[in-house]
Amino acid sequence: MSDTTIKPRIEKAPVLERITTALPIALVPVLAVLGFVAIGDPAAWLTLTVAGLAMGLMIFIMASGLTVVFGLMDVINFGHGAFISVGAFVGFSILIWLGGWTASSSVFLNLAAVFLAILVSMVATGLMGYAFERVIVMPVYGQHLKQILVTMGGLIVAQQLIHVFWGPDEIHVARPESLRGSIVIGEAAIEKYRLVAVGIGVALFLAMRHVLKSTKIGLLVRAGVENGEMVEALGYRIRRLFLIVFMVGSALAGLGGVMWGLYQETITAHMGSEIMVLVFIVVIIGGLGSVEGCFIGALLVGLLSNYTAFLAPKVALVSTIALMVIILMWRPQGLYPVVKAK
């Protein structure tokens, strides 16, 4: 064992660094332009692009918690999908309970119902995240193999409990009155709900960015992702920070679940684990632990899925895998590899 644990540090020229940092961001418009060229029809392209952004933002909401949790404590929660499903089912129950509001033609009541459904399911999945972290994840910190197995076990149990509470069948979720149908821009028909999803997604991304850049807890999260040991040496309890982040990530998965349920209009206990495939692809593309990378990855996957679904429906999921492979060949650690000092 040597005392010298310092690694050679290669200082890059700042200008070059700035260009390579910015490069991944450019991928999104590049993909949109390529999509435009391939599709040819502006109206169809606009519809698909909005759909792709909506999908991408929803995936981002679900994936962001997962990637930060990994960055902070080197924990990947394979049971993350459970929060998505539970969020969707809780949200659905609230929407049923507020049936009067959702059936009303008042936009305000409709949005209030959705808002309440989101709020309750976020609280529920946040608390579930607390229990999950304490019972399932905490005993296996630092042991990747057990972590994967145990969180997978948690997923199985959670899915079965959904069956116990809500029954085994898939459930149809009706969107509130004013979120049904489309608005027409030029020749392009755009579903109203997708615009709402884009709105929520963008707002959430900006809020998250603000928290990460301008609050002490955000600074701690970013610092902890880079060097958790040093954060502890400065006097902060990183375990507690991690628990908070885990709960927030779970609540965000719950939020994503409600939004995804309203988007698909059907929910099943397995929806979470099905979406997790896309979530994992996004997290890998973005670089494990990176929120920015996750955001870009989610938009890329959302757009690509929708373009290919239109151009060649059978290869939609395969195309996202291909995207992942290409990006990993370019950057083996994902778009924004997180520097780990650990």
């Binding site: 002490k216 701690l220 610092a223 992702v225 954060v231």
Partner: peptide, 16 residues
């Protein structure tokens, strides 16, 4: 290894 948070600014390092 100094344990600097390179992702943060000097000011943010000091704040933490």
């Amino acid at each position: 290894d100094m344990g600097i948070f390179t992702d943060l600014t000097v000011a943010e390092n000091m704040t933490l």
